[in-house]
Write a protein that binds this DNA or RNA. Structure first.
Lengths: 250, 250
DNA sequence: TAAAGTATGTGAACGGCGTTCACCGTAAAC
DNA sequence: GTTTACGGTGAACGCCGTTCACATACTTTA
C-alpha cells in the first residue's frame, strides 16, 4: 500500500516540500514572501510555480499551514520535556511555548494566525479545521480533564449557537470521540484560546506597554485567571513558576 | 493666537486632510491602499506624495491614526445615546460598537489595530500613546470607577513591571491626573483591553467558528466575565441585553 | 517500440507597485 | 526685486503577481 505513488507523484511532492521549505527560509531571513523570490531560490522561473499553486494567496495559505505544523512540533516538544502524567504542566508548557514562539517569529505568527480569511468558502477553512496547534491544545486540555474531571458547562446551559458549534465543530478540535454530554469542554477550550490569542496577538503587534510585553506579566495574568476554570486553582503557583522560568530563558 | 498659520501651512494641512480622506475612501471601496492610487485620485503624480510622507509605511501610519480617530467618534456616539450618568452602559455601548465596527470594517481594523509595530523607536509609538480609542475607553472606565468605586489592585500588589507601566504609562491612557495610589485602575484597563482585543481580533480574522462569530456569544461571554471586576456584577443582565440588541441590529 | 498525451518548465510581456532623481515654476521671505 | 524654499512633474529602476504561447521530457497507450 506504500508504493502506489508513481515517480511523478513523488517528484511533485518533493517540489511542494521544497516550496514550503524555501518559503520558510525566506521568512526566517526577514525577507518578504513572494512568488518570484521562492522561484528564484529554487532555480525556477516564476511562472513555473503556477504549476503548483494557482495564486500568491494559495502559496501563503500553504506556507501558513506548514508554519503551524512546524511550530506545533516545538509546542509539543516543550510538553514532552515534562512527565506524561503532568497534564497541567504539559498544557501550560505548550501554551507558553506558543507565546514565546510568536514573539520570536512575529512574521510567521502573523501569517499563520492573523491572516484574514477572506471567503468562508475557500480551502482556508478546511485547513483551519485540521490546524495542528489546535489539535495539540485541545488534546492536552482533554487529557487534563479526563484526569481531573473539573466541572464543565452542561450542553443545556449553552446558548444555541455555542451548542451547535461544540456538537458539530468546524474549527480545529479532535473531539469526534468525545461524548456529546461532555462537549462543554470544547466551549471551555474556545474561551481559553480566545484569551490566549488576545494577549499574544497584542504582544506580537506591540499594541501594549513594552515593559509588560518584556516581563510577560499580562501573559502570566491571563493564564492565572484561566487556570481555575480547568481545575488548576491549587496547582497555579507551580505553573506560574514554570512560565516565568521559560520567559526568563527568552 | 488662532491665525499664526501662514497661507502655506493651511494649504499643507488641507493636503494632509485630503490624503487621509482619499485613503479612507479607497479602503471603504475595498481597494488597496497604495501611494499611486492615492496620488492618482488626488490628481497628483506619485512622487509628489513624497513631499508629505517619507514612505508608504508612513502613509499607512497616518491613515491608521485617522481611522482610529474617526472610528472613535462612532464609539463615543454610541455611548452618547445613553444618559450621562449611566457609566456602565456607556462603556459597554462603546465596547460593543468597537466590536461591530471591527467586523464591518475588517480592513480598517487590521490597519489600525493589527499592524505590527516594527521599531519601537518610530513615531508609531507616539501615535499609539495618543490613541483616540484608548483615551475614550480609559476615560469611560475611569468615570465608571469614580462613580461606583469598585475595588482596584493596590500598587504594592502589582508586579514591578506592571507598577512601572501604570505609574508612567506609554500606552494610550489619560491618567496624568489620576492619583498614584489609584493607578491600579490602569492595570484593570489593560486587562480589559487585552480580552476585548482577543475576541474581536479572532472574530475579524475568522479564526473562530462562524456560528459563534455570527451570534456574538464569545463577545457576550467575555464581557460578562469581565464585568464583575469593575463592579458590574448586578448590572450585567441589563448590559447583556444591550449588547444583544446592538448585535441583532447588525 | 512508436505514437499520443500529459506534466513541467521557459521567455517574453503586461500592468501595478514603492521609490529616486533631476528638473521646473511659483509663492513666500528677505 | 532678488533669493530661497516649497510643491509638483516626468522619466526611470527594480520589484511584484500574472498570462500566454511555446518547448521539453516523461508516461501511457496502441
Amino acid at each position: 500500500m506504500t508504493q502506489v505513488q508513481t515517480r511523478r507523484e513523488r517528484q511533485r511532492e518533493a517540489t511542494y516540500d521544497e516550496i514550503t521549505r524555501v518559503s520558510r527560509e525566506l521568512l526566517a531571513e526577514g525577507a518578504e514572501l513572494s512568488l518570484r523570490a521562492v522561484a528564484g531560490r529554487m532555480g525556477m522561473t516564476p511562472p513555473a510555480l503556477y504549476r503548483y499553486v494557482s495564486s500568491y494567496q494559495e502559496l501563503v495559505d500553504l506556507v501558513a499551514f506548514e508554519i503551524d505544523k512546524a511550530a506545533t512540533e516545538t509546542f509539543a516538544a516543550a510538553a514532552d520535556r515534562l512527565p506524561a502524567d503532568d497534564h497541567a504542566g504539559r498544557l501550560v508548557a505548550s501554551v507558553t511555548e506558543f507565546r514565546m514562539w510568536a514573539l520570536g517569529n512575529p512574521r510567521e505568527f502573523t501569517l499563520a494566525f492573523a491572516n484574514p480569511i477572506a471567503d468562508v468558502r475557500c480551502m482556508r477553512r478546511e485547513m483551519l479545521t485540521i490546524s495542528n496547534s489546535g489539535h495539540l491544545m485541545t488534546g492536552q486540555m482533554r487529557a487534563l480533564w479526563e484526569h481531573n474531571h473539573h466541572p464543565i458547562p452542561r450542553l443545556e446551559d449553552l446558548p444555541p449557537a455555542v451548542r451547535e458549534s461544540v456538537t458539530d465543530p468546524l474549527i480545529p478540535a479532535k473531539v469526534d470521540d468525545l461524548a456529546l454530554e461532555d462537549r462543554g469542554l470544547v466551549w471551555l477550550f474556545q474561551q481559553g484560546w480566545t484569551t490566549l490569542y488576545g494577549v499574544v496577538a497584542l504582544e506580537v503587534f506591540g499594541h501594549m506597554d513594552p515593559r509588560i510585553i518584556e516581563s510577560g506579566e499580562m501573559f502570566v495574568h491571563v493564564v492565572r485567571e484561566f487556570a481555575p476554570k480547568i481545575g488548576l486553582a491549587e496547582d497555579i503557583d507551580r505553573l506560574e513558576a514554570m512560565i516565568r522560568e521559560r520567559i526568563a530563558r527568552r
